[in-house]
């Protein structure tokens, strides 16, 4: 992994909106210890804001009663938490063995050639970000691409191109 410890400020304080507040309240009695709420709370932050800012981590520490450093630990240990704003559409391409064997590199190369998008980056218009991730558990339908949480199986360059076109037109 790369270093994830340089936190970014959103420049504004964070607080759960009504939906997330309700979900957090639902979860509270499900755990005998409040530390267990840190991960769900970080998920809620990400759901609401798209990423997890320093301010949001402070908020999670306050809401759960955990040490700030512990929230910091969790946010940086678990790699699905975005510590930078991703693109409007976040593309994950599985890089691990089965997808590698079924030529996931063609997909990565296609994005580089057509969107000028490389792993770890966001397109200039902020529309797409790309991450090469470890095994997504769809090895039988490799290569697999996950966009905004939705899985696209048995991918090839053509299907990826069509998908990007769809997302692009939707974005406009």
């Amino acid at each position: 992994m790369s270093d994830r410890s340089q936190l970014l400020d959103a420049g504004r304080p964070f607080a759960f909106d009504e939906t997330r507040e309700a979900e957090f309240t639902r979860l509270e009695p499900r755990y005998p210890e409040r530390d267990s709420l840190i991960m769900p709370a970080l998920w809620l932050v990400q759901e609401q804001q798209g990423w997890i800012s320093r301010e949001a981590m402070e908020y999670v520490a306050e809401r759960t009663g955990a040490y700030h450093a512990q929230v910091f630990e969790l946010a940086t240990f678990y790699t699905m938490y975005h510590l930078r704003p991703p693109g409007k559409h976040h593309i994950c391409i599985c890089r691990t063995l089965s997808c590698y064997l079924r030529e996931k590199q063609l997909l990565v190369d296609w994005l580089a050639a057509n969107l000028d998008l490389v792993p770890g980056a966001v397109t200039e218009d902020g529309r797409f970000s790309l991450e090469e991730v470890e095994c997504l558990g769809h090895c039988g339908s490799a290569p697999v691409v996950q966009v905004d949480g939705v899985f696209y199986e048995d991918m090839d360059e053509e299907k990826l191109g069509a998908l990007i076109e769809d997302l692009r037109s939707e974005a406009i």
Binding site: E33, R34, S36, P40, W43, E73, F77, Y78, M80, Y81
Partner: peptide
């Protein structure tokens, strides 16, 4: 309880740590 990107949490005691709100 949702994980958040850590293979090691499949190890049973790491999984417990993760539910307890710690690193896996």
């Amino acid at each position: 309880h949702r994980g958040a990107g850590a293979y090691i949490c499949g190890e049973e005691t790491a999984l417990l740590e993760s539910i307890e709100g710690k690193k896996g």
